[in-house]
Amino acid sequence: MWIDLVFWAGFAGLLWVNRSRPVFWPLLALGLLLLFNRFTTPGFFDLEIRDGRLYGSLVDVINQGSKVMLLALGMTLVIATGGVDLSVGAIMAIAGAVLAQVVGVAHLSVTVAIVAALAAGLLAGAWNGLLVAGLRIQPIVATLILMVAGRGIAQLITDGQIINFEQPALVFLGNGSLFGLPFTLTLVLAMFIFTALLVRGTALGLFIEAVGDNETASHFTGLSAQRVKFLVYVFAGFCAGLAGLVAASNIKSADANHAGLYLELDAILAVVVGGTALTGGRFQLAGSLVGALLIQTLSTTLYARNVSADIAPVPKAIVILAVCLLQSPVLRGKIARLGRFLPKTKGGAA
């Protein structure tokens, strides 16, 4: 009971602290969704210790949501420059394929495999960066190339087979737990802190926002817009590589056909729900993480409530629409104006 109290008090406190920040709205939506589950979805908040680790739906949300959270970190920076990266799902498949090929088929060490997989992610990101920054191809087209070709490359690497691996260190990555919590949580937090330090601790964040706001102006102030762009695509590739590792480790195999399929859309959605505009400029790193958590909480809620997969996209879309509407300054202004001009009746109009 008191754990319940602490949780909700903590959440309310979090909302209060962020009341004037953009992250408030996705956070509020997440809070409402959790509250809804608290009272209407039996067992959603049940937590117990099994085999020395926390076990429950909330833990699943974090563990399964970690892939999109990692993708969203890279995607936030790409979107902040006014671009988009459609290839992250395919890069996940490539990274997973490289990982499985190195340990499963070539029988090299786990360290080599992880380094190779992350390098593949970096390389894929550099390819995107080269097309966008070097050759000035529109980001949506440039990354579409790898989105389509990437899965083929991954299939080529694995020869179209699902490759299994059992190395404990690799399995730990996506399934292990640290201090009773999923290791993926530590991974996501570490990446978040690293990214936050990178963009807020240095001038890089400012550069990214400047490029996204007005590329020409930032060029005239002496900023190498192309270098900044190249960098964010490489970073997004790295994040996708990491997410690919987690995805492969989670099912102890590389499934080139399905790993990360459509996750680029979830990542973009997470960023947008988190309060970063697709037009570029200011970005909300923490908002993107909350957005990713919101999306995963939605999925897990629909599973837990036994909502059939045929109709599951509908409630999902409604919640996402609601969050987007909450964030729309135009709509908020309209509602406020409506309240002001309508004659005061009992119970209030809007």
Binding site: D46, I162, I251, D255, H258, N306, S308
Partner: peptide
């Protein structure tokens, strides 16, 4: 319980996790 796992390993695992956690 009946839910789609999309014919994939990852979804099969994710959905089974939620099956097992339901009351």
């Amino acid at each position: 319980k009946s839910q789609s796992g999309d014919f994939t390993r990852a979804k099969g695992k994710e959905v089974m996790e939620s099956f097992l956690k339901s009351p």
